[in-house]
């Protein structure tokens, strides 16, 4: 671990101003991922600016019926919030499917969105990884990659990267069309969560579109008036990252899909909003065949690697099952 300075600021603006002056610095939230990466030498910040208690730890009602989640809200508190459990079950379920009780107590909403891939080549400084060390190559591409991406990877050049985004919570937030509120050196801005994470493109070192010094202060949830749920598949019953996960919301009227949201986890460098599947479904009969066709439409773009082709039928099955469960159908 490299030596670093630890700083606290009186308010978010001061923290942003401080980090803006420190090109090698980083914000510290719960530290459940960053500190691990520092111990491994993967992250080498020279300054940590602790924002865990600077951003709000409150979940508050918005006038439109939505919720505002302070970036400092611990994952455990968010999962336990009555409004979240009743109105956004997909989010509560996603949170509880992640990590462990101890980690959820510590991890923050903002930090959860910014956690980094657990790819074994990224977390090992002795291996090539374009995300950690741009230009060094992608060790996973022809290496151990059973739990890597099947969509949106970059296969060649300095951008080669087949890593997945690890967050469960983010998958639910993407399905919910959440809005991320950011404070930066130039002031406040908001962006749809779908624009927060980015595919590797030609620069996998950047997980998100945030600029240095920008701080997530809150996440806004628009009102949701349809049933939702989260399904996470993993070989171990607890404390494992998703092989594939599905965040879904569905309203069926007169046997026809009136509204649907679908996002996949464990399949790409970002939480993956399944727009193609949604478009296929809207206005169609809510049948198993239609759900399978929708999943197929989304997964037609899949480009699995040597050892992770199973994720394609797995994702299809989980999409179909989750939508069937939401539509009340059995088979």
């Amino acid at each position: 671990m490299k030596e670093f300075r630890y700083e606290r600021s009186p308010d978010p603006a001061a923290a942003v101003a401080l980090l803006a002056r420190e090109p090698g610095g980083a914000f510290l939230g719960g530290g459940t991922n960053l500190v691990d990466l520092m111990k491994l030498g993967v992250a080498t910040p020279d300054v940590l600016v602790d924002v865990r208690e600077l951003t709000s730890a409150e979940v508050s009602d918005l006038p439109d019926g939505g919720l505002r989640i302070g970036a400092g809200v611990p994952n455990a508190d968010l999962a336990a919030d009555r409004r979240v459990r009743e109105r956004y079950p997909v989010l509560a379920q996603a949170l509880l499917a992640g990590a462990s009780g101890q980690l959820r107590n510590r991890a923050t909403t903002g930090g959860n969105l910014l956690q980094r891939t657990r790819c074994g080549y990224f977390t090992d400084v002795t291996r090539p990884c374009n995300k950690r060390s741009p230009g060094s190559g992608c060790g996973a591409l022809h290496g151990v990659h059973r739990n890597h991406a099947i969509l949106g990877q970059t296969f060649e050049g300095p951008g080669a990267c087949v890593a997945t985004h690890p967050s469960d919570m983010a998958v639910a937030l993407v399905a919910l069309d959440a809005v991320v509120r950011v404070l930066g050196p130039d002031g406040e801005r908001s962006l749809p969560i779908g624009e927060l994470h980015r595919l590797p493109g030609n620069d996998p070192s950047r997980d998100t579109t945030l600029r240095h010094g920008e701080l997530i202060t809150a996440v806004d949830l628009p009102p949701l008036d349809l049933p939702s749920r989260y399904r996470k598949v993993r070989e171990r019953a607890s404390y494992a990252f998703a092989l594939v996960s599905v965040a879904a919301a569905l309203r069926v009227e007169d046997g026809v899909v009136a509204d649907v949201r679908l996002a996949l986890g464990g399949v790409a460098h970002t939480p993956w909003r399944a727009r193609a599947a949604e478009e296929t479904l809207l206005g169609r009969p809510a049948t198993e065949e239609a759900f399978a066709a929708a999943a197929g439409a989304e997964l037609a773009a899949a480009t699995p690697l040597r050892d992770n082709g199973f994720k394609v039928p797995l994702a299809r099955n989980v999409v179909v099952r989750t939508l069937l469960d939401l539509s009340g159908g059995t088979r």
Partner: peptide, 9 residues
């Protein structure tokens, strides 16, 4: 890893 020879996980 058959190329680098190490235990990845």
């Amino acid at each position: 890893d058959e190329h680098f020879g190490h235990f990845v996980n």
